[in-house]
C-alpha cells in the first residue's frame, strides 16, 4: 500500500512537472522533452492500474513515435528558438484562459471530492476483467469482436491521414524546376535525344556502319535522366 502510494505520488509529481514544463518552457525542444516525461508518468499509472498493453503502446507510440515526429518537425522547420511569453497579443486572452482553467479545475474537483471515493456507474457484466486472463488477450477480445467495426474504421482513418499528410507536405509547383534542370524539362530533353538519334540514324544509314555505339549512348543518357 505504501509502495503504491509512493509510486503514485512520485509519478504524479513527474506528470505535473512535465505538463508544467510543456506549458511554461520557451524552447519547443524543451517542451517536447517535458511532454515525454508526462507521457512516461501516465504510462506508469497505466501499469499501476493493470493496463499493461496500453502502457506499452503509450511508451512506444506516444513517446517513441509521436514526440519524435514533433522533434523532427521542430528541427525541419528550425523553429527551435525561444518564444516570448511575457505578453499575449490578444487582449485579455491570458486572464480569460486562466479564469476558464480555474473554473474547469475547480468544478471538476468539486465534483470529484464532494462524492467521496466512489465511482458511480454500472459495473461491467459482459467485458469483465478476468484476473486470470492476460490484459492483452482481454483487450484483443473486445477489439476484434464488439469493436471490430470501429477498429476497421480506424484503419481507414489512418490511411486517409497518411495520404493527407503526403499531399499537404508535398512541395508545391512543377515537379522539376528550372534550377535543377538547366537544360529544360524532361520532355525537352527526350525530344532533343530523339532528334539526335534520328540524325544519327540518318548518318548510320548513309555510312552503313554496324556499330551500335550511338544507341548505347542514348540509352545511358536516358538512364542518367531517370
Amino acid at each position: 500500500m505504501r509502495v503504491e502510494m509512493f509510486t503514485f505520488l512520485l509519478t504524479a509529481a513527474i506528470c505535473l512537472a512535465g505538463s508544467a514544463g510543456v506549458v511554461l518552457l520557451r524552447n519547443p525542444v524543451h517542451n517536447a522533452l517535458s511532454l515525454v516525461a508526462t507521457l512516461f508518468g501516465v504510462a506508469v499509472l497505466f501499469i499501476q492500474q493493470g493496463a499493461y498493453f496500453l502502457a506499452a503502446i503509450q511508451v512506444i507510440v506516444y513517446a517513441g513515435a509521436i514526440v519524435i515526429l514533433f522533434l523532427f518537425v521542430i528541427m525541419l522547420l528550425g523553429v527551435d528558438k525561444a518564444e516570448g511569453l511575457d505578453r499575449d497579443p490578444i487582449l485579455g486572452q491570458r486572464p480569460a484562459a486562466i479564469a476558464a482553467a480555474v473554473a474547469i479545475l475547480g468544478l471538476s474537483l468539486t465534483a470529484l471530492l464532494s462524492v467521496g471515493s466512489r465511482v458511480t456507474g454500472q459495473a461491467s457484466t459482459l467485458a469483465a476483467i478476468d484476473g486470470s486472463e492476460p490484459n492483452i488477450n482481454a483487450l484483443a477480445k473486445v477489439l476484434f469482436t464488439d469493436y471490430v467495426f470501429a477498429f476497421e474504421i480506424t484503419s481507414v482513418l489512418l490511411t486517409v491521414a497518411v495520404v493527407g499528410a503526403v499531399v499537404l507536405s508535398r512541395k508545391a509547383g512543377p515537379a522539376i524546376d528550372a534550377a535543377e534542370f538547366p537544360e529544360g524539362t524532361t520532355a525537352d530533353l527526350l525530344q532533343a535525344k530523339h532528334d539526335a538519334a534520328a540524325v544519327e540514324q540518318g548518318v548510320l544509314e548513309e555510312v552503313a556502319t554496324e556499330d551500335e555505339t550511338p544507341e548505347g549512348e542514348a540509352e545511358t543518357a536516358e538512364e542518367a535522366l531517370r
Binding site: 506549458v23 484562459a97 482553467a101 471538476s108
Partner: peptide, 14 residues
C-alpha cells in the same frame, strides 16, 4: 483533472 487543466491553459496561451 490537473493535467487536463494545465494542457488547456497551454493551448490557450501559447
Amino acid at each position: 483533472a490537473m493535467i487536463f487543466t494545465i494542457g488547456a491553459v497551454g493551448l490557450l496561451t501559447r
